[in-house]
Every structure is written in C-alpha cells, then in structure tokens.
C-alpha cells in the first residue's frame, strides 16, 4: 500500500532512544566548551598585551622619549605575557579525563590563582604604566612650548631637574592611587573581558553541584 511522505513523517517516527546522547554527555561537552572558550579568550588577551608592547616600542622609537624606556617596557610586558601564557598552558594540562566537575573545579582554582597573581603584579604594573606615560608626555613634542606658557603664567614655578614640582607631585599621587586601587581596577578589567565566561563557569559548577546533591 502506498503512503504519503507527510503521513510517514508524522506518524511513523519512532526512534531507538538508547541512541540519543544523554544529558551527562552534554554536560561534559558544555564543560569542554567553556574551558576552550576561556583559554582561547585568555590567550587572545595575552597576545594583545604582546602586540601592545611591540606597538609601544615602535611609538617610543619615533618619539623623543628615551628608547631604553621603550625597550624596558617591551621586555616587561613580554615577560608578563609569557608568564600568563605559561599559566594558561598549565590550565590546559588539567586532566580532562577526570569528571567534568573535577576538571572545572581545578580550572577555576587555576584561574583564581592566575587572577590573584596578576592582581599582585598590577600593584606595580599600573603605577609603572603611569610613570612611563608621564615620561612620554614629558618628552613628547611641544614640551618646550608648554613650559614657556607655564613660565609666563607661573613665573615663580618650582622645578626639580627642570620638571615642574606640581607635575611630579601629581604623577606621584596618581601612581600611589593606582597602586592602592589596583585590585579594583584589575577586577573591573577582568569583568570587562571575562565576566560572561566566568559567570557561565560558575553557573555550570553550581548546576553540577545541584545535580550531585
């Protein structure tokens, strides 16, 4: 007897349910997915740091700022990037054959460790960035014209090594403030780049804990 394809499609669909991957597999898949996305995103950010360091070196080369400063910053940021790459690699070596829950917990610990280390580094990184930016600003084009204008307005301006003392005080205060608030700034930075992924990671871990109980 002939049957229409429409009827067969609607009425005769019976599928061996054993062949459908269960939700546990999906859980594993989801864990691997978040793990991959996170490490990829971290690698991308670290690579951006290296590109920034290179760009900075090129910029210093063409500016009037001392080249040694550019080289030092280039080396400094690259060391930081290499350290981060190393930590990411360590995270990638986490045994994925363990249960999803176990390796996500290990990954979260590794991630927290990395964030903690960077937070400590940034206590120095931010003020250094501030100092470097100030030096660049000081050596940048038009410095002499600005100084002339300043002298006209404030003829009794105090200078230390030819640099206005207020400028030095402002740089110092800003550097100290950056150091004091480095943890908050870094947290904001992390949230900016990784908030969604961190939230997803926490959500999966929470769901897995719920399923376990």
């Amino acid at each position: 007897m002939e049957k229409s394809i429409e009827n067969i499609w609607r009425q005769e669909f019976k599928f061996n349910k054993e062949l459908i991957p269960d939700s546990h597999d999906l859980q594993n898949q989801k864990s691997k997915d978040i793990f991959d996305r996170m490490t990829r995103s971290m690698k991308k950010n670290t690579a951006m740091l290296m590109i920034f360091a290179l760009g900075f070196l090129v910029f210093v080369y063409f500016s009037e700022a001392p080249l040694v400063l550019g080289i030092l910053i280039f080396l400094f940021f690259n060391s930081l990037a290499l350290f981060n790459f190393n930590q990411i690699e360590k995270a990638e070596k986490i045994n994925k054959t363990a249960t999803s829950y176990e390796y996500l917990i290990k990954f979260r610990n590794q991630l927290n460790k990395l964030i903690g280390l960077n937070m400590r580094f940034n206590r120095f990184v931010y003020p250094i960035c501030m100092l470097v930016a100030s030096i660049i600003l000081w050596f940048s084009y038009g410095r002499e014209a600005i100084m002339e204008k300043l002298f006209l307005k404030f003829p009794d301006m105090v200078l230390i090594n030819g640099i206005p003392v207020y400028f030095l005080i402002a740089v110092l205060i800003l550097s100290v403030l950056l150091s004091v608030f480095s943890a908050k700034i870094y947290k904001w930075e992390v949230n900016l780049f990784f908030k969604n992924l961190i939230d997803e990671l926490e959500e999966i871990i929470q769901q897995m804990e719920e399923l376990k109980n």
Partner: peptide, 12 residues
C-alpha cells in the same frame, strides 16, 4: 538506519 524502527520512515 536501523535506529528508526519503522521501515517506511527509514526509506524516506
């Protein structure tokens, strides 16, 4: 294809 238990469905 044997996952589909109906012969007609499998053919389709």
């Amino acid at each position: 294809e044997s996952a589909f238990t109906s012969e007609s469905f499998r053919m389709l």
